[in-house]
Structure formats: C-alpha cells, structure tokens
C-alpha cells in the first residue's frame, strides 16, 4: 500500500478522486514513444536542406539562450527568497521618475543577454518595484552591461565611438520607455499573475522558495523562449540575403531595414556586434540601429514578454519600444558622431 501510493505519486495537491483520466504525464509518454518509434521517419522529414538549416539554427538558439535563462531564473528566485520587498523599497527612490534612472544604471550589473533579464524584471515587479523602473531594467540590462560593451569594442576595433553610441542609445531607450510607462502606462495591461506579490518569506523556507520560484519561472519562460527560437530560426532561413547587400547607399532605408532585421533575427546581444561589423557594405549608423534595437525588442523577446507579462502588455510595449529604440539610436549616433 505504501509503495503503491509512493509510485503512483499523489503529488498533485488538491487532486480529488482516483478516477482514470488521461493526464499530461501519459500524454508526454505517448509523444515520446511515438517520436522514438518514428525516429527514422522524422530524420527523413528533416533531410531537406532548408529544414536542416532551420533546425540547426533552432537548436543553436536554444542551446545558446537556455543557460542565460537559467541564470535569469536563479536571480529571480534569489530575489524572491532573499530580498524582502521592503529592502527594495528602501533602496529605490520613491518617485517613479528617479527610480527609472537608478534602474537603468543598475542594468550595468547584470552581465547576461536579454533572456536573463525578463524573469528578473518580472520578479522585481512582484516584489513591489514600480513597473516603470522594472521595465527600464528589462531594457537596459541586456544592452549596457560590460560583457556586451566589450564585445562591441572587439567587433569594432579602432571605433570607440561605436561603444559610446551604443551605450548612450540603449540607456536612453530604456529610460525613455520607463518614463513613458510612468506617464501613460496602465497597470491592467500587465497580467495579474506577473504582479502578484509573494508573501514575505519566513527564515526556514528561503531555500524552498528559491528553488520553487526558479523552477516555475523556468518552465513558464522556457516554453516562450522555445517559441521565440522557432520563429527566429524560420525567419533566419526565409529572410533573403539580398536584404543585406543593396543597402550601401540609402541611409534611411538602411536604418529601417537593419531595425527590422534586428527584430526578426533575434540575435544574442553578445553576438550581434560581430554580425553588424561583418556587413562591410553598410555605413555605421544603420549598424548602430541594429545594435540598439536588437537587445530591446525582437521576436524571441516578444514571445518571452507576452508569456511573462501577458499579451495585451506585449502588443503595446514592443511596437513603442521599436520606435523609441530607432529614434534613440539615430540621435545617439548623430550626437556621438558615428554617422
């Protein structure tokens, strides 16, 4: 009897009866079984050049991004378990406008790429940080941290103004979005689930809360990261290479196309500088736009944001971010003298 209940895992809390119902565990087993039996057929299916390239890019994006997402959920769990809300309230300025500034500069401290910052920003909101400040952190962290800036400097040797312009443009994008949100943003756009405040953690339960928060965040955000990877790998195969080639002379068209490419290619913010630098036919300004837009808004991030903060948030936030990022990049580029 004892072993039965143990193996049978009455683990789902609140399960009422023992009636036979097909649960997700059985579905998972069935899918795995079918997939293993059909492996030969599956491999044949993917033996088309375009699909093969697409599936390689898909796995590459997942393998590259998942460790960063894990880092993000660990930080998120640590905030939930070890940083009581009142500490954050004490550290951040009371006024949202000033908090946005602090949050933007705090982005310097998270050396990861964009996948890591989404769960962290969401947890900050959950701990009572003003949404405007949390969103500023979300946009600033992947773009202005030292790892990304060093990568940019390495990709553009002898052009320190590129690093400066990227830093200024990205930080400006994050802060402008924060202030826009503080002024016009509505809390009801963000799904209630993301804002729910965790109860203060008692001393003995910290590690349990840490593991449980990290696990839940990982399951939720991971699914959306995979969705983003699917979309970006499809676009990676479908976007014609000629887009890169013909833009040498037309600066306005170049800026627009590079902004759109930054969104659809969804490159990691630590790698995009190398891709931009390798496009020798382009002037510097469109490259800068590519570097500022990419970490702020792309298809992978959009999927992550929609999953974390809710769809009605993402469809408002992403387009505005896109416009603000392009504008900030152009202004920063002109001021620093990149163009």
């Amino acid at each position: 009897m004892d072993t039965l209940s143990g193996a049978d895992t009455g683990t789902e809390p609140g399960r009422r009866t023992r009636r036979f119902r097909i649960s997700s565990v059985e579905v998972l087993c069935a899918i795995l079984l079918v997939a293993i039996l059909g492996q030969g057929w599956l491999q044949q299916l993917f033996d088309v050049p375009a699909l093969r390239t697409g599936s390689t890019v898909f796995v590459a994006v997942c393998v590259q991004a998942l460790p960063f997402l894990v880092l993000g959920v660990l930080i998120s769990g640590a905030i939930a378990a070890f940083v009581p809300a009142r500490v954050l309230e004490k550290v951040l300025p009371r006024r949202a406008g000033a908090a946005v500034g602090v949050a933007g500069l705090a982005g310097v401290a998270l050396p990861g790429c964009e996948c890591a910052s989404v769960p962290v920003a969401r947890r900050l909101m959950g701990q009572g940080v003003a949404p405007a400040a949390a969103l500023t952190f979300l946009l600033a962290a992947p773009a202005v941290n030292p790892v990304v800036l060093v990568a940019t400097a390495v990709a553009f040797p002898g052009k320190p103004e590129m690093v400066l312009a990227r830093f200024a443009g990205s930080l400006a994008t994050a802060m402008v979005m924060g202030w826009l949100w503080a002024r016009w943003g509505k809390l009801e756009w963000i799904t209630e689930r993301a804002l729910r405040r965790l109860p203060d953690v008692a001393g003995g339960q910290r590690w349990r809360v840490f593991a449980e928060t990290a696990r839940t965040d990982l399951v939720e955000a991971g699914g959306f990261l995979v969705l983003g990877a699917l979309i970006s790998s499809a676009l990676n195969v479908l976007v014609p290479a000629k887009w890169f080639g013909v833009l040498g002379d037309q600066i306005v068209l170049g800026v627009l196309v590079m902004a759109v490419l930054a969104v659809v290619l969804a490159l990691c913010s630590e790698a995009d500088a190398f891709v931009a630098a390798s496009l020798t036919a382009l002037p510097l300004l469109p490259k800068l736009v590519f570097l500022v837009v990419g970490p702020a808004v792309d298809v992978k991030l959009f999927a992550l944001q929609a999953g974390t903060f809710g769809r009605s948030f993402a469809v408002r936030f992403a387009p505005v971010t896109f416009v603000v990022a392009v504008a900030c990049a152009v202004v920063a580029g002109l001021l620093v003298g990149v163009a």
Binding site: L28, A35, S55, V59, V219, G222, G223, L227, L230
Partner: peptide
C-alpha cells in the same frame, strides 16, 4: 500550457 514547447528542443536534440 506553453511549457509543452520545452519538448521541441528535447526531441530535436535526441532524435533529429
């Protein structure tokens, strides 16, 4: 529900 998508990279890595 989107967590089902986590299965896609698993299948891609192990089977494809």
């Amino acid at each position: 529900r989107p967590a089902w998508l986590l299965l896609v990279p698993v299948l891609a890595v192990f089977l494809v």
